[in-house]
Design a protein around this nucleic acid. Structure first.
Lengths: 148, 148
DNA sequence: ATTAGTGCAAAAGGTTTGCAGACCA
DNA sequence: TGGTCTGCAAACCTTTTGCACTAAT
């Protein structure tokens, strides 16, 4: 069963393309489809790999351009965890979440905490800010790595 | 009056250098001094500029190498706010803090909130993690920009 | 003396861009 | 048909690295 709390990003993309006089293309649709149906935090290379599994002729630049487009539209969020690769994750399709990152094995766990977000809004307000979005990353060691 | 809640990072650096058979150098001391006496979030180029104001012969690579060393020691923290430049900020000299970033004018405000950190630790524990450090950035609009 | 550090310039690695041709509306 | 999109390769930019030389211990 699909989650319909939010609009289908595919439809949002189509609407944006129509509204801005852009055009759809085989590659763009494939990249978007692979991206939207993925979980997690894909680098461009990882995404390209999955895309090429279905169509080997897709170029790297097209993936970069498509992800930039999706990020502009707000359908993809860029993240930099410090390994030198920009990673993208679907935004609209899922609840907002933050990240727990194991500095030993690199595992990434997502979480979401409403209390923290309330506090964030409060802190921001104290400084005169209205927050539109945030990024929070907790770095540490996961249970598995600690066991060793 | 100086703040002595934490050890002087200059002393920490000296100790590390001695312990690891490294050597001090005019450039390294200058870069560290400029960095430790700065506030905020300096890119390597900004740092280089300030360093060269005092000694024009310092090379860019030396700044990169020195900041990498300081980051290893734990005296500098790397931050990426998405403009393509890694920024460093002094760690030990100040209380830990997070960032409020105005997406309109780029202003960066620091803050610190103990309640949030307690919640972070709790959330991490639920996932089996022990947190060593974290990064939290709140993006939004500051009061000045909202007024316009 | 020995060994680490420096400056320069080249290399590396990720991302962007110019261009000619392909493709969608 | 006209304008957008694509793939390729070159260009770009930040950061890293090799090397010969300088300097600290």
């Amino acid at each position: 069963m699909k989650d319909h709390r939010h609009a289908d990003p595919r439809a949002t993309l189509k609407a944006y393309i129509a509204k801005h006089g852009l055009k759809t293309s085989r590659q763009r649709e494939l990249i978007a489809e692979v991206f939207f149906s993925s979980t997690g935090h894909l680098s461009v290379d990882e995404l390209l790999e999955r895309v090429r599994a279905q169509d080997a002729r897709v170029g790297q630049a097209t993936v970069y351009r498509t992800m930039k487009l999706l990020a502009e539209i707000g359908l993809a969020g860029a993240r930099q965890f410090g390994d030198g690769h920009t990673r993208y994750e679907p935004l609209q399709a899922a609840e907002h979440h933050d990240h727990l990152i194991c500095t030993s094995c690199g595992r990434i766990v997502e979480f979401h905490n409403t209390q923290i977000e309330e506090l964030q809004a409060r802190v921001a307000k104290q400084h005169g800010f209205v927050v539109t979005h945030h990024k929070m990353e907790l770095y540490g060691m996961c249970a598995d790595c600690r066991r060793k």
